[in-house]
Lab assay of single mutants.
Amino acid sequence: EPLWIRPDAPSRCTWQLGRPASESPHHHTAPAKSPKILPDILKKIGDTPMVRINKIGKKFGLKCELLAKCEFFNAGGSVKDRISLRMIEDAERDGTLKPGDTIIEPTSGNTGIGLALAAAVRGYRCIIVMPEKMSSEKVDVLRALGAEIVRTPTNARFDSPESHVGVAWRLKNEIPNSHILDQYRNASNPLAHYDTTADEILQQCDGKLDMLVASVGTGGTITGIARKLKEKCPGCRIIGVDPEGSILAEPEELNQTEQTTYEVEGIGYDFIPTVLDRTVVDKWFKSNDEEAFTFARMLIAQEGLLCGGSAGSTVAVAVKAAQELQEGQRCVVILPDSVRNYMTKFLSDRWMLQKGFLKEEDLTEKKPWWWHLRVQELGLSAPLTVLPTITCGHTIEILREKGFDQAPVVDEAGVILGMVTLGNMLSSLLAGKVQPSDQVGKVIYKQFKQIRLTDTLGRLSHILEMDHFALVVHEQIQYHSTGKSSQRQMVFGVVTAIDLLNFVAAQERDQK
Score class of each variant (00 low, 15 high):
238 I>N: 04
241 V>L: 02
242 D>G: 04
242 D>F: 05
242 D>C: 02
245 G>Y: 02
250 E>F: 02
250 E>N: 07
252 E>F: 06
252 E>H: 02
252 E>A: 12
254 L>S: 05
254 L>Y: 05
255 N>V: 02
256 Q>R: 13
256 Q>Y: 09
258 E>L: 10
260 T>L: 02
261 T>Y: 15
265 E>T: 05
265 E>S: 02
265 E>I: 02
269 Y>V: 02
270 D>I: 05
272 I>N: 04
274 T>P: 04
275 V>S: 02
275 V>L: 02
275 V>T: 02
278 R>I: 02
278 R>Y: 06
279 T>C: 12
280 V>I: 05
285 F>Y: 11
285 F>D: 09
285 F>V: 15
287 S>E: 13
288 N>C: 11
291 E>S: 14
292 A>P: 09
292 A>T: 15
293 F>L: 04
294 T>I: 11
295 F>C: 10
298 M>Y: 14
302 Q>Y: 07
303 E>F: 04
305 L>P: 02
307 C>D: 02
307 C>S: 15
307 C>V: 02
308 G>Q: 02
318 A>I: 02
318 A>T: 11
321 A>L: 10
321 A>R: 09
323 Q>W: 11
324 E>W: 08
324 E>L: 04
324 E>I: 13
325 L>P: 02
325 L>A: 02
325 L>S: 02
330 R>Y: 11
333 V>G: 02
333 V>R: 08
334 I>Y: 02
335 L>Y: 07
336 P>T: 06
339 V>S: 05
341 N>Y: 04
342 Y>N: 06
345 K>C: 05
345 K>R: 07
347 L>C: 11
347 L>H: 02
349 D>L: 09
350 R>C: 07
352 M>S: 04
353 L>P: 02
353 L>D: 02
355 K>D: 02
355 K>T: 02
356 G>R: 06
356 G>A: 02
359 K>T: 14
360 E>S: 13
360 E>F: 10
360 E>V: 11
361 E>M: 08
365 E>W: 12
365 E>A: 11
365 E>L: 09
367 K>W: 12
367 K>R: 12
369 W>S: 04
373 L>V: 13
373 L>A: 14
378 L>N: 04
378 L>R: 02
382 A>F: 14
383 P>H: 02
383 P>L: 12
383 P>D: 06
384 L>G: 07
387 L>R: 12
387 L>H: 05
388 P>T: 07
393 G>E: 13
394 H>L: 06
397 E>H: 11
397 E>W: 10
398 I>R: 08
400 R>P: 13
402 K>E: 15
405 D>L: 04
406 Q>E: 09
408 P>F: 05
409 V>C: 15
409 V>P: 10
410 V>Y: 14
412 E>L: 11
414 G>V: 11
415 V>M: 08
416 I>H: 04
416 I>M: 14
417 L>F: 12
417 L>A: 07
418 G>F: 09
419 M>E: 05
422 L>Y: 02
423 G>A: 06
428 S>G: 14
433 K>D: 02
434 V>L: 10
438 D>C: 09
440 V>S: 12
440 V>N: 15
441 G>M: 10
444 I>C: 13
444 I>A: 12
446 K>P: 09
447 Q>I: 10
447 Q>K: 10
449 K>C: 15
452 R>Q: 02
452 R>D: 09
453 L>A: 08
456 T>P: 15
457 L>P: 07
458 G>A: 14
459 R>S: 07
459 R>V: 06
462 H>T: 09
463 I>H: 15
463 I>N: 05
463 I>D: 09
465 E>I: 02
466 M>W: 15
467 D>E: 13
469 F>A: 13
469 F>Q: 13
470 A>L: 12
471 L>Y: 12
471 L>G: 15
472 V>Y: 02
472 V>K: 02
473 V>S: 15
475 E>T: 02
477 I>V: 09
477 I>N: 12
477 I>S: 08
478 Q>W: 11
481 S>R: 14
482 T>Q: 02
484 K>S: 14
486 S>Y: 11
487 Q>R: 11
489 Q>G: 02
490 M>F: 12
492 F>P: 12
493 G>I: 11
494 V>G: 06
497 A>L: 02
500 L>C: 13
500 L>Y: 07
500 L>S: 08
503 F>M: 14
504 V>F: 12
505 A>H: 02
505 A>L: 02
505 A>C: 02
509 R>V: 14
509 R>G: 14
509 R>D: 15
